[in-house]
Simulated assay, not measured.
Amino acid sequence: MLKDTFARRALTLKSSEVRELLKLTDSEDIISFGGGLPAEETFPVEEMKILCNEVLSENGAKTMQYAVSEGYDELHKIIAELMGEKGITVEPCDILITSGSQQGLDLTAKVFLDEGDVVLCESPTYLSAINAFNPCYPEYMEIEMDEEGLIIEDLKKKLNKNKNIKILYTIPDYQNPTGRRMSLERRKALMDVASNYDLIIVEDNPYSELCFDGNNFPPLKSFDTEGRVIYLSTFSKTVCPGFRVGWVSASKEILKKYILLKQGTDLHTNFFTQMLIARYIEKYDIKAHIKDNILIYKKRKDTMLDSIKRYFPEGISYTDPQGGMFLWVTLPQMISSRELLVNAMKRGVAFVQGSAFYPGGGHENTMRLNFSGLTEEKITKGVKILGELLTEELKK
């Protein structure tokens, strides 16, 4: 009976393998490299205790009232300044506050995608972007990557083969899942291609602040003179994820569509947490806070790499990210990371199999490891267990 009632998108929805895995790993007994969790010790808990009292005392019931869909004006101004420091010229009115950058992805799908439209994306790409786009029934064309990001020549080939392309989705900085950073030359070349082919780019940029080598590159949006880059970002990785405060910046014509669709989704993002984020940045040194986070994450990344070099058998390749939260492992073709995961879970270790990050599936010999959310001790222990399992697999 219900089957005849549900919409097609509801009938075809499938549980995310990653989300189901994370339910199983929510235990002190499991060393989970699976989630993209920031380190909880980086959350400004004590500062927020103070700010909660200040904001409530000064604003009273206003903090609990309905608010405009666009978001808190003071936060708009702060974000515009932060983007300006990256070389992006943007007015506060060109920013929409979203419920995390995940809502930005959901709204992107609603704004641009009809059934059969083509999404260009890196291969592999962010799993939750795929999940956000899928209810609109798009087709995907995956663009090959190397250590400098998406390969421009492969992008041109895909553009020449298909005229129904709506958007290119990319994470230029410390990409999830690979940790790769698009080179400056590729960024400039990509913007040239976008102009020549009249291509809309969705630039997802949650990790750029977490730069380990002090040599970050300007965002694609900073090169945009035609209003063709839609910029998504969030405070989830720099302040805390639970407040669910992100944003979209785009041309006025495009942003208007996002705002109208957000009104029908949730009216507005949590107003109280918007005010808290704004007050936190006004009162405290967020740059110093981010530097402290970087020291923690870089040390954990180095620990993971050192452990991989020590415990993994030969014949396995992996990325060495200069920022972000993840690294990417490529196993010998005969090893399935899906089967490896089953055995690893029995020994108290979890990760995400790489096939989940490819819209077309396959690539069973890959996996993503997160280093930000675990202590160095647990990282070393977990990698050692994975190394032992891999050594056993190669002996079969």
Rank of each mutant, 00 (worst) to 15 (best):
Y66S: 10
I152F: 06
I277A: 11
A67H: 09
L150H: 11
L107D: 02
L341S: 09
S128C: 01
T330R: 13
K157M: 12
A350G: 08
T125E: 14
H289F: 09
K287M: 00
V229S: 07
K62Q: 12
E253T: 09
Q102M: 13
E58N: 10
P218H: 01
K158D: 02
D173F: 09
E46L: 04
A39P: 04
F133Y: 13
T265F: 05
F133T: 01
T319A: 03
D4P: 02
L220E: 07
L56Y: 04
D198G: 00
A39T: 02
E142Y: 01
L21N: 06
E185M: 09
Q322E: 12
L327D: 10
N343R: 09
E282H: 10
K237R: 14
I95H: 15
S27M: 08
P218D: 06
Y207E: 13
L96Y: 13
Q353I: 00
K252I: 02
R19Y: 15
S57L: 06
T380F: 03
L276E: 01
M334C: 14
A39Q: 11
P135M: 11
D292G: 10
I277W: 00
Y280C: 04
P321Q: 01
K257E: 15
F351L: 07
E147G: 07
L56M: 06
L199N: 03
I385Q: 06
A7K: 13
D306C: 01
M275L: 11
L305F: 02
V229P: 15
R181M: 10
M191L: 13
S123D: 01
N270W: 05
F326L: 11
K346Q: 11
L190V: 02
K86G: 11
I171M: 15
P321W: 03
A344H: 03
N176W: 08
A356K: 07
I281N: 04
K287N: 14
